[in-house]
C-alpha cells in the first residue's frame, strides 16, 4: 500500500498541475485577504465576523483548488490513459482508489498550509497598517488556520473520490461547481437547517469562516470536528461507490 501511495505522490509531483495550483492558491488567498482588508470599513473587519472572513480566505481558496485538483488528477487518469499502467501494476481497484485519495489529501494539505501561511503573512501587517485589532482570541485564530489546512486536505479527499467515480474531468468539475454554487445556495434558502449538512455549511464550519457565509442567517452550523467527520463520510461514501461501480466497469 505504501508503495502505491508513493507512486501516486510521485505522479502528483511530476506534472505541472500541482505546482501551478500551489502558486495560484497562494496568490488568490493573498489577493482575497488583501482586498477584504483594504476595501472593508475598519469597523467591519474589526469585528469577529470580519476577522474570520479575512483569516479564513487561505483555507477556503486552497480547499476549492484542492477539490479541483482531486477531480482533475483522478478523472485525468481515464482521460490520459494512465489508469492502464496503474491498474496493470496494481489490479486491485479499491487499493488504487484509496492510494489516489490519500495522495490528493496530502496534496490538499500542502496547498492549504501554503495558502494559510500566505494569508497570515499578508493579513496581519495590513490589518495593523489600518490600525485594526482582530477581535478574535489566539485560540480562535489558531482554530481558523488549522481548520483551513484540514479543509483543504479534506477537499482533496472529496475531489479524488468524486473524480474516480465520474471519470470525466469536464463532467465532474462542472457537476462539482454546479452543486457548490447553484444547488446548495438554492436548497439552503428553501430548506431550513440544510446548511448543517451542505458542503458549503461544512466548509464554513471546518475552515472557521463566518457563519453568515454558509447562507443561513445565524448559527446553525455543526462544530468543526463534527463537520470534518461528516465531510469525510461524504468522501468515503463516494470512494466506496467508485470502487463498487469500478469492479464491474471496463477501463
Amino acid at each position: 500500500m505504501s508503495r502505491l501511495i508513493a507512486a501516486e505522490l510521485l505522479k502528483l509531483r511530476t506534472t505541472r498541475v500541482v505546482p501551478g495550483l500551489l502558486v495560484a492558491s497562494v496568490a488568490l488567498s493573498v489577493l482575497m485577504a488583501a482586498l477584504i482588508v483594504l476595501l472593508s470599513s475598519t469597523s467591519d473587519i474589526g469585528g469577529g465576523t470580519g476577522g474570520r472572513l479575512v483569516l479564513s480566505s487561505g483555507g477556503i481558496v486552497a480547499g476549492i483548488l484542492a477539490l479541483l485538483l482531486g477531480i482533475v488528477t483522478t478523472a485525468g487518469e481515464y482521460r490520459h490513459g494512465t489508469i492502464l499502467p496503474t491498474l496493470l501494476t496494481n489490479p486491485d481497484r479499491l487499493r488504487v482508489t484509496v492510494a489516489q485519495i490519500v495522495a490528493n489529501t496530502l496534496a490538499g494539505a500542502v496547498l492549504g498550509l501554503a495558502s494559510v501561511v500566505g494569508t497570515a503573512a499578508v493579513s496581519f501587517p495590513l490589518l495593523a497598517s489600518r490600525d485594526v485589532a482582530v477581535a478574535l482570541s489566539a485560540a480562535q485564530v489558531t482554530g481558523i488556520f488549522v481548520g483551513g489546512v484540514c479543509f483543504a486536505a479534506l477537499s482533496g479527499t472529496l475531489g479524488a473520490a468524486f473524480g474516480g467515480l465520474i471519470r470525466n474531468q469536464v463532467v465532474a468539475v462542472s457537476a462539482a461547481l454546479l452543486v457548490l454554487f447553484v444547488v446548495e445556495p438554492l436548497v439552503t434558502s428553501l430548506v431550513d437547517g440544510y446548511q448543517r449538512y451542505s458542503l458549503t455549511g461544512l466548509r464554513v464550519a471546518i475552515s472557521g469562516g463566518a457563519a453568515e457565509s454558509a447562507g443561513a442567517a445565524s448559527g446553525g452550523l455543526p462544530p468543526a470536528w463534527l463537520a470534518a467527520l461528516l465531510w469525510t463520510g461524504y468522501a468515503l461514501a463516494l470512494a466506496v461507490a467508485a470502487a463498487a461501480v469500478g469492479r464491474r466497469r471496463d477501463i
Binding site: 508513493a6 507512486a7 510521485l10 511530476t14 505541472r16 490520459h80 492502464l84 496503474t86 496494481n90
Partner: peptide, 24 residues
C-alpha cells in the same frame, strides 16, 4: 496496449519512475 497511456505533461523518465515505484 493500442491506446494512450501517458500524461502529456510528464517526462518519459518520470513516467517510468512512477510505475517503477508502483511495481516495486
Amino acid at each position: 496496449l493500442d491506446a494512450a497511456q501517458f500524461h502529456p505533461g510528464r517526462t518519459g523518465r518520470d513516467h517510468l519512475r512512477v510505475f517503477a515505484k508502483a511495481a516495486g
